[in-house]
């Protein structure tokens, strides 16, 4: 128990440290530290609509982050959430635009299922390569992510482009308002119940089912799991599928929620930030919920800050990078001490 507390504390210290480091850099560049801090607080919590905005950004981070947690439990590093998210959104959009006249609940259900299917497929391909041929999933899921982004770009600029659009960036037509499950804020009871339910289900799956335990064994030592009769390949495919499904679901929620239409390159970092969210959440479900809210707040602040200070949005993205960097270093160190090669490296 104390070990768990220690890990939580050291991660919290890391996040705070990254924040200070970022502020230091901003201070050196001539911004006023007080303004930056108060801007962050306002943008994430106190300003009008800020806390709603925090939750709005936390939702996709949480859904994709939970997928990362699932993958990690079985020893796989699925960092392609971005592409799976895009593909999910695209498929939900296709269903919704193609069946405009359909009854709303049915269209939303079909669109969501299509999104889940698309995310799953986008994740299963690298998963299959990994399980069957041992191809490094970090590379393949990342590459699939770029492909996903290009597919989105093609669709929004080509077949699904809104011909009457006037914006600078290509975007699709809007889905009918009756298909929306939230207003423009992106938060509603339905969405909160859905996301909360998913989080509970994922927790139960990981911590209270035999499949969850089998995943843990495969993640810790696939050789031993195989000797115990566990089909490590099948467990691996299932985790890839689940983690892609969650990212796809996030895409559908984005479309039926705050988005209503798809814009080329929307939410460009959410899939990657979700990986950091999962790591900061110590690869547990509860931790990921907390981290998602934290990073949702940051995202909200990033959008708000230019309003109160002259700080450009990328300045706070620096903070993401900083946290990701430090958390990854820490994670590597822990992995080296406890992971498969630990004994060999110690002696």
């Amino acid at each position: 128990m104390t070990g768990g507390l220690q890990r939580v504390a050291s991660t919290a210290v890391l996040v705070v440290f990254s924040l200070l480091l970022t502020v230091l850099i901003l201070w050196v560049s001539g911004y006023r530290v007080g303004d930056v801090f108060s801007g962050i607080i306002q943008g994430a919590v106190t300003a009008t609509g800020a806390s709603t905005s925090t939750i709005r950004w936390a939702i996709p981070l949480l859904l994709i982050g939970l997928g990362v947690v699932i993958g990690f439990r079985a020893g796989f590093f699925n960092i392609g959430g971005q592409g799976q998210f895009y593909m999910g959104a695209c498929c939900a959009l296709a269903v919704s635009l193609g069946w405009r006249e359909g009854p709303a609940p049915l269209v939303i259900l079909c669109g969501t299922l299509a999104a889940i299917g698309a995310g799953t497929a986008w994740s299963l391909l690298p998963g299959y390569l990994r399980v069957r041929f041992g191809t490094d999933e970090v590379l393949t899921t990342l590459m699939m992510s770029f492909i996903g982004a290009l597919v989105l770009q093609y669709l929004t600029a080509g077949p699904m482009r809104n011909p009457s659009g006037t914006g600078q960036t290509a975007a699709s037509e809007r889905i009918p308002d009756s298909f929306r499950i939230t207003d423009g804020s992106g938060v509603s009871t339905t969405v909160l119940l859905l996301v909360g339910g998913v989080a509970v289900l994922v927790w139960l799956l990981l911590e209270r089912t035999r499949f969850g335990l089998a995943m843990t064994l495969v993640g810790r030592n696939p050789t031993m799991a195989r000797w115990q009769g566990i089909n490590a390949g099948r467990v691996g495919l299932a985790t890839f599928a689940l983690s892609g499904a969650l990212a796809g679901l996030a895409g559908a929620v984005e479309l039926y929620g705050p988005g209503a239409r798809l814009v080329t390159g929307f939410s460009p970092e959410v899939g990657f930030t979700a990986v950091v969210v999962a790591l900061v959440g110590l690869l547990t479900v509860g931790g990921t919920v907390v981290a998602a809210v934290l990073f949702g707040g940051l995202q909200s602040a990033i959008l708000f800050l230019p309003i109160v200070t002259d700080l450009p949005p990328p300045a706070l993205v620096l903070l993401h990078g900083m946290v990701a960097f430090l958390v990854t270093i820490k994670f590597q160190a822990v992995w080296r001490r406890t992971g498969p090669g630990a004994k060999a490296m110690a002696s």
């Binding site: 035999r210 499949f211 335990l213 089998a214 843990t216 064994l217 810790r220 030592n221 050789t223 031993m224 799991a225 000797w227 115990q228 009769g229 566990i230 406890t338 992971g339 630990a342 004994k343």
Partner: peptide, 24 residues
Amino acid sequence: NSEGISRSAPLWLNQSALRLIGRH
């Protein structure tokens, strides 16, 4: 050490590994 147990997994999980296969 590599085929018989999972070194970093807890004892109870190592001990109950055979309960994870087959029908529930």
